[in-house]
């Protein structure tokens, strides 16, 4: 197998330039999908027969929860690539992902709590799904704090990568918690994509929001990655020519 493309992608100057080129391809579709999803979810979708209009919270809660896990998985894979193949750019991807993932974990937890009050009668329960999602937030905080606490960048990268990889064990726990334990949180709506437990009128705005949020993460990652590359490559000669453009 020819790995030239991989090595080229891992080169900071190439990644810096390609990130700029890719950015509009993520940002504009993300904006359009989120606007369409919001319109579909807030205006076109009918109220739920049990939850009424409170169900509409799912249009921001589910994308937040999805990204909280997707970003962590991305961060952990990047961390593993950085550790195993010693690719510095992979550590930059991991560093760029952590704050984004943490912000979407906060969104998932907060919107879940706000939805829980009228539906469950409580803001919070120490339910397996909620607790494991809260642990995810602590893992993000731990990875960021560990990285910030070590001055030497290589050591900080390695330490944060080990913690990120160890924390991956929490992802299947979050996903399967609703099946493994008797939780108050309902089972997944969308994993059984062939037979989703949601009416089509309610489903398509959710799918648009999920795709829109995913592309949004892609766009933010590209901007943050460019910033990370600039910080990490500050003494590189290619940067002088790049900045002169």
């Amino acid at each position: 197998m020819n790995w030239t493309w991989f090595h080229k992608l891992a080169s900071p100057p190439h990644a810096y330039r390609i990130a700029a080129q890719l950015l509009p391809w993520f940002a504009w579709p993300a904006g359009a999908l989120i606007v369409a999803g919001l319109y579909g979810g807030l205006v076109l979708a009918p109220a739920d027969y049990q939850q009424g209009d409170a169900f509409r919270i799912v249009y921001v809660h589910a994308p937040g929860a999805w990204l909280s896990m997707l970003v962590y998985a991305t961060m952990a894979v990047a961390a593993a690539v950085g550790l195993i193949w010693r690719i510095k750019l992979a550590h930059a991807v991991a560093a760029a992902s952590a704050p984004v993932g943490a912000s979407f974990t906060v969104l998932a937890l907060a919107t879940g709590a706000i939805w829980g009050k009228p539906m469950w009668g409580t803001w919070w329960v120490w339910d397996a799904r909620l607790t494991s999602e809260l642990i995810l937030l602590f893992l993000y905080a731990g990875v960021m704090a560990l990285r910030a606490s070590i001055d030497d960048r290589d050591r900080a990268d390695r330490a944060a990568a080990v913690l990120a990889i160890v924390g991956v064990v929490n992802l299947p726990i979050i996903h399967y918690s609703v099946y493994w334990w008797n939780t108050l949180h309902q089972p997944a709506t969308l994993t059984k994509i062939g037979k989703p437990s949601m009416a089509g009128d309610m489903l398509w705005p959710l799918l648009l929001m999920l795709l829109g949020f995913t592309l949004f993460y892609g766009a933010i990652l590209l901007i943050r990655l460019r910033a990370e590359i600039l910080k990490r490559e500050r003494d590189a000669t290619w940067l002088t020519t790049e900045l002169a453009r």
């Binding site: 409170a54 921001v60 969104l107 919107t111 706000i114 939805w115």
Partner: peptide
Amino acid sequence: AFVWPCFALA
């Protein structure tokens, strides 16, 4: 009172 704060937070 529950729906809009969620969208505002998002």
